[in-house]
């Protein structure tokens, strides 16, 4: 009964998916007929089942999440404080702005050689590349959030006895910038995720979604490649959804209604 209700409610979405998968299966099996060019839906499903059964998919998930976690946590620990002091203190902004503006446009993947030279073939090296991708959006958005703290809120706080810079940052500027900061984190995590495949390409580990994608490509097992592509997409989507749900529910309750 419940399943039926869900199906009825989401009929257009479900139909669209079913049609797409059917077309894909038909095109792959009867028109292209070459697994190398386009593996069929069932090829992908069977490769999925085999990696789940052997347990490698689970290890790949964990390793990739670890790389991603190292990068994103480092980006948060560095990006948010840097953005805060840049946004709050004009001199700090003028000192750090030229450096950041020079480093920022460098594509994160261009850092890979140095990541390997500095950190070797380690998980940290992969994390570093993701860090470079994630940190700038976090800095910029934290900075922008702090720049647009409403003057009237700051003055109201001062009159109420909140006068120290540190208290103003903690009690006024930070909470009021939170929408912008969390948007920065979302963008940063997205960019970091994009860097994952390349960061794992160099074999910092024998596991990881990105590494496995390349490895199977080397073996011309395109059904596995496609399966890992889907896994990267699904995991990326899930991370974003979970994060977004958390901030909307816990941190930005006060905003509902402001933006639909």
């Amino acid at each position: 009964m419940k399943l039926k209700e869900v199906a009825q409610k989401n009929a257009p979405e479900i139909t669209s998916l079913i049609v797409a998968v059917t077309l894909w299966q038909i095109v792959a099996e009867f028109i292209i007929k070459r697994e190398l060019l386009l593996p069929s839906f069932f090829d992908v499903v069977s490769s999925f089942i085999s990696t789940v059964e052997s347990g490698t998919l689970f290890i790949d998930f964990s390793i990739s999440l670890m790389h991603f976690g190292i990068g994103v946590i480092a980006a948060l620990l560095i990006g948010i404080p840097v953005g805060i002091v840049m946004g709050w203190f004009k001199t700090v902004n003028r000192i750090s702005d030229p450096i950041i503006e020079i480093l920022r446009p460098i594509p994160p993947l261009a850092w890979i050689p140095f990541a390997l030279v500095w950190l070797g073939l380690t998980h940290t090296a992969a994390g570093f590349v993701i860090f470079v991708g994630a940190v700038f959006p976090i800095i910029i958005n934290t900075y922008t959030g702090f720049k647009s703290v409403s003057k009237i809120n700051v003055e109201a706080a001062k009159v109420l006895g909140c006068v120290k810079q540190r208290s103003l940052i903690r009690h006024i500027a930070f909470p009021s910038s939170l929408p912008s900061i969390t948007a920065g984190i979302r963008i940063g995590m997205g960019v970091g995720w994009m860097c994952l495949v390349a960061a794992e390409f160099f074999g910092v580990s024998k596991n990881g979604l990105g590494y496995k994608l390349w490895w199977h490509y080397g073996l011309h097992q395109m059904d596995f490649v496609l399966m890992y592509m889907f896994m990267l997409g699904i995991l990326g989507l899930t991370i974003d959804k979970v994060f977004r749900k958390y901030i909307d529910k816990r941190l930005l309750k006060w905003q509902s209604g402001v933006v639909v």
């Binding site: 109201a156 009159v159 006895g161 905003q255």
Partner: peptide, 16 residues
Amino acid sequence: PDPKRGMVFQEYSLFP
């Protein structure tokens, strides 16, 4: 500024 002198502003100054 000092809490001895409270102020109510023209615009909405509540912390949202």
